[in-house]
Write a protein that binds this DNA or RNA. Sequence first.
DNA 1: TCATAAAATGAAAAGGTTTGCAACAAACGC
DNA 2: GCGTTTGTTGCAAACCTTTTCATTTTATGA
Lengths: 352, 352
Amino acid sequence: MSAESLTILDIAREAGVSSATVSRVLSQHPNVRPDTFQKVKAVVDKYNYKPNSIARGLLQRQSHTLGIILPDIKHPYYASVFSAAQREAMSSGYVVQFYRLAYNSTITDDFINQLIERRLDGVLLCGGFIEPTCANDLPDVLHRLQRYMPIVTICPPITGLRCINIYTDLRSGVRKVVRHLSQLGHRRIAFIGATHETRSVGERQLGFEEEMAQLGLEPILLVENIHTPAMGETSVRRLLAEEGGDRAPTALVVVNDLVALGVLKGLRKLGISVPEEMAVVGCDNQFFSEYTNPPLTTIDLAPEELGLLGTRALLHAHDSNAASFNQARESTLIIRESCGAYLRRKIDVSAE
Amino acid sequence: MSAESLTILDIAREAGVSSATVSRVLSQHPNVRPDTFQKVKAVVDKYNYKPNSIARGLLQRQSHTLGIILPDIKHPYYASVFSAAQREAMSSGYVVQFYRLAYNSTITDDFINQLIERRLDGVLLCGGFIEPTCANDLPDVLHRLQRYMPIVTICPPITGLRCINIYTDLRSGVRKVVRHLSQLGHRRIAFIGATHETRSVGERQLGFEEEMAQLGLEPILLVENIHTPAMGETSVRRLLAEEGGDRAPTALVVVNDLVALGVLKGLRKLGISVPEEMAVVGCDNQFFSEYTNPPLTTIDLAPEELGLLGTRALLHAHDSNAASFNQARESTLIIRESCGAYLRRKIDVSAE
DNA sequence: TCATAAAATGAAAAGGTTTGCAACAAACGC
DNA sequence: GCGTTTGTTGCAAACCTTTTCATTTTATGA
């Protein structure tokens, strides 16, 4: 394939200089005589020579490569994180490698070994996998990785692991949602969520339960393995079968917008109108949430900001003395129509 | 950071053998005496030694890394391609690096140089950027890249470039859609699409125009820079302002599901019911298309299959004698409710 | 013009692995 | 017991750069 395997020595020979000089020309070293520079440059251009970054990486002990670990790139949330991370990395001359770690699997030694062997310059950990049941030996595994490269996590902090951590405070976000619903008059509010497979999912549920408790309301929980629209669609029927009649909720807090998409369809099929008969709130503020019918009230988690800041932190992890810090960002409530706030406002106005 | 910079020599010394033997142990070479194997293995395990893949890559002249180039990882279509590609690559011990090339930019020499310097083992090109106006020198640029690494494209074939090409035949897909709509009785059919910024978009429009011509129908075109839901939403109003009254279309073929999402909302705001007053068809069969209201009729392009096959082809590109072939896959029409087929069927039934 | 300082260049080592070749040991056939 | 084959191991080169240090060239000042 690459018959074109020119080395710096070939260039040096042709230009009548040493390889050191060629290297200096390529890296814009100041101490090169202008005429030498031109002479070498001409040969480099003539053959379109490109230095082998593998060889350079070996010598300089850095690969100019970042790893990014997340459970599913098809999930719009992670895609946003990834996109922003790549952009930031690229603008600093770094390249990102994608490592997938499924939702319900934990970080194994083998997984870590791949990263170590590749001699990455840093790793961005974006949640998923970090389930409490796995978390027992998780800090140990990550400590080993940390001896080789800096780690930045952009998910709820992992206890026992000291590293830079940037995340959006989901728990308080969900609490805002619950408070908002209660202010709209809802008393029977249900949470449709996944089992604690990921930390961020756990945070959502915690936020829900905390706020319900504080408001003195009895929480209704449907916590199963629900993480696709299809699962959301069927979950509604189950929920209303269990909690029917006057026990039926009037508002649903759904673990994320993806699932909420299915929930909306499920309600539609049951002939339950949103928001008139049932308020629905999602979480994530995906690109499609503005376009559902009705548009979905949700929580914005600023994934792109996390990706950007996380990558930036990773790139500065070496020269930074703050080798470990947590930065929690506020989430913002995006009020659209599915929660009935606008409806309610109309009613209020007409009642005056 | 990596105080842990053990080399193969350290291991060799401690085990009392040469580095060659350690290397053979690590790569499971057959000609190693069992007791030597054990002895070395013990030291390797003791220090948890991991060979430096950068050094290995330098010597073996392969990085075990694939590049994948696409315009936007947040776009669900590309995310699907990427996801499948990564999975396939990973299962063969390869890692994928993501390179973004914006929709309306072309592949420059600088861009190519990055790939060459990284000494990737292959590159998967997933469209976007390959706009006709850029295409003049595109084959040249790619030819240069091809001297260094195999290229597989999973977008409509690029004229002037011989390489493995796997794609879904969009043109015939859109023709199927138009035929379907005409069979449902529609005569005034409009295409809402983007300017020819990407080849695949161009293919869609061509398919539309070809089939309309064949059916003897006058095509209605709204071709602007439309590629987001928001743009779709506003486009409807413009279309109906231009083509109003009895000139108004009764069916819309939308360039992709993302835009169709906005189109549906735009129609809703105008009080036009889908599919009763307006049939709508998208393209891409995204995960959300099943959950719109009404569920969107669309074309499935099997992006995961493309990602899988493309990567597989790339990995076999060296030993394959078929250095160049085109493989066009059939797209499949997914009939849901937004085109009115089910509605029509009901009408037919009641008419009998 | 000469001593000295500064700038430009080259030689060679280093980075960590794999692998061809040679050397050596062991097993085998006769 | 000896020549031959097979199986193990080590040496050293190779992969392609960058960078230190020493050396040569050029500029500076008296």
